[in-house]
Nucleic acid binder design. Structure first.
Lengths: 116, 116
DNA sequence: CTGTATCCGTTGAGATACTG
DNA sequence: CAGTATCTCAACGGATACAG
């Protein structure tokens, strides 16, 4: 998918490419939740009030294809799957941080990633 | 609109609020184009290959409502309208820059806002 | 020149029920 | 538990024609 973006599209500005990867309603939140800890499917679902399993699956698959998150399947009964950020995924934490900080000024609230 | 966002929604993370303002297919590009110069409606349309007037109008109105851009109407015939970033709008240039830089690494290309 | 109005297809996204 | 499958509605977004 990364290669598809590189090959098939041309952008006015790389911002577009970035937003194609981390944009949308749910992806930023998923990445946000994973910034500090591994989470299971059900854990993510609880963290994100209101997302349907269909949507969550879709977003997770796309993030996985783009190499931002890792999906670890434990072959147990009942099944267990853990999601975490890859090293590549971690490279965009500063970007999320920037978005977060601007949102704070905009909303006048505090940000969990906080001071650094 | 800003107040609507502040009042009616609650976010898991301020990132959501930020993306609600600068997200989408066209807004980042509009802001990008306006980062260095005032532009007229037709100028923006040319800069952004393929956008329909309807879409451009809609995005511009929303950015204006959110206080990011200024719309200056010159009461002439033929009409002339110039769009520019407000001071508030300029506060998100660093954010766009962060998105841009990550896109560059991701795409391996250069960014127009450049080194700083 | 700067938009509106209309039509239309595609994608996003929620609700719900169900499966291995 | 971790998803799929299906249905549904709304929002996004393109094309085009037209108006002040």
């Amino acid at each position: 998918m990364v290669s598809e973006i590189q090959n098939s599209k041309h952008y006015q500005c790389p911002v577009e490419a970035t937003l194609e990867v981390i944009g949308g309603k749910w992806k930023p939140i998923i990445l946000w939740q994973l910034r500090t800890e591994k989470l299971r499917f059900s854990g993510l679902q609880q963290s994100m009030q209101g997302i349907s399993p269909k949507m969550l699956t879709k977003q997770l698959r796309e993030l996985e294809e783009d190499g931002l998150i890792l999906r670890q399947v434990y072959p147990e009964i009942p099944p267990k799957v853990e999601y975490s950020l890859t090293d590549f995924g971690k490279t965009m934490l500063p970007v999320l941080d920037a978005l977060c900080k601007w949102g704070n000024e905009y909303l006048g609230r505090e940000c969990a990633l906080g001071k650094k």
